Computed example of a mutant assay.
Amino acid sequence: MVYDESLVQLMSSLDSGVYFVDRKRRIFFWNKAAEFLTGYSGERVVGSSCSENILRHISAEGVELCVQGCPLAGTIIDGRVRRTEVYMHHRNGQRLPVTVWAAPLTDASGQTIGAIEMFTDQGDRGSLLRELEKLRHEALADPLTGLGNRRYLQIVMETRLESVEKGGEAFGLFMADIDHFKKVNDVHGHNIGDRVLTMVATTLGSAVRPLDAAVRWGGEEFILVCPKVPPKALGEIAERLRLLVEHCWLELEDTSLLRVTISLGATRARRGDTLENLVARADACLYRAKNSGRNRWVLDE
């Protein structure tokens, strides 16, 4: 692949985020779609490395790819095209699932001078926006975070619990709480607190499947309802949620980074359950996670 002006024009017109790096992984091109998908302007990122608190891709297992397994670094070394699914850091702090392609960037003589990364949002943004608009219209969405509210959870649970009663596969319910959130408000103020709530809510909502339900339960507590979750998957999902929030941060006006963690409790539905006793079991597990040191999860045995 040869770097020239026609290539730049083509990449500038794409809906996918695209950026070019040199052999030292310094960014020298950043298209408009990359600005839209990440929240970072070209002026902010050109000349810096993507690992400098910009994208900081991590895997579903929490591995920081800038440190271990960077697709751009591998492509610069061996010239191979790579595709991977990662969680990207957005300027607003949250983690978002994206599919990434890395390809070598060569000069006219065929020498590798860097690499190109293209990334695209894994979610159907148009469908998501339409659904959120519908929720707002029906007063089922939390106005701050955009997640469902308690009424939305009640509607979802009626359907899920009815299915379990009829012999359908059990679902998992996760309750998450932001650790030391009162301190965030006390130290940084409620505006920053609201940004933290939105960051965590967006990360949690992006970490689950389209048919799962993500709800703001109240304050700094969230509930996620995930159908067709076998017992062994509860811990895997809880750990993924914990890791993704742990790898989020907000960049404050003084350029310092504000990070938070969550604690989680999780349980599976069974016949005879109600919303109230399911939430009570998950809340008891959450309480145990908090008392065990926070930034961890506990399952209902």
Results as ranks from 00 to 15, higher is better:
K182Q: 05
L241V: 14
F171I: 01
E246F: 14
M199K: 02
P210D: 02
V200K: 02
P231F: 06
H188N: 08
L250V: 06
E246M: 07
M175G: 03
L173F: 03
A266E: 11
A282M: 02
L250R: 07
L7Q: 10
D107F: 09
H247P: 08
L258V: 11
H57K: 07
R151N: 03
R91C: 06
I76K: 04
N291C: 08
G148S: 09
Q122L: 15
T274Y: 01
R294I: 10
E64N: 07
D121A: 05
E131R: 15
L286Q: 01
C70T: 12
I237Q: 09
R240I: 07
D300S: 02
A233C: 06
L204P: 12
A238V: 09
D300W: 08
D194S: 07
R23T: 11
S48A: 08
L65S: 09
L241N: 10
R195F: 01
D254V: 09
H190Y: 08
A176L: 15
D212Y: 04
R281D: 05
S206H: 15
Q111M: 05
T274A: 02
M1H: 13
V200N: 07
R83D: 08
S16R: 05
L65Q: 00
A108G: 10
D142N: 07
L234Y: 03
I113T: 11
R281I: 11
L244F: 09
E133V: 03
S13K: 07
G167K: 03
I155T: 15
D254I: 13
R288A: 10
T261A: 15
M118I: 13
Q122S: 14
V18G: 03
T203I: 13
G148K: 02
V156P: 00
I223S: 05
N149I: 10
A115C: 12
N53A: 12
M1R: 08
F20A: 00
S256N: 14
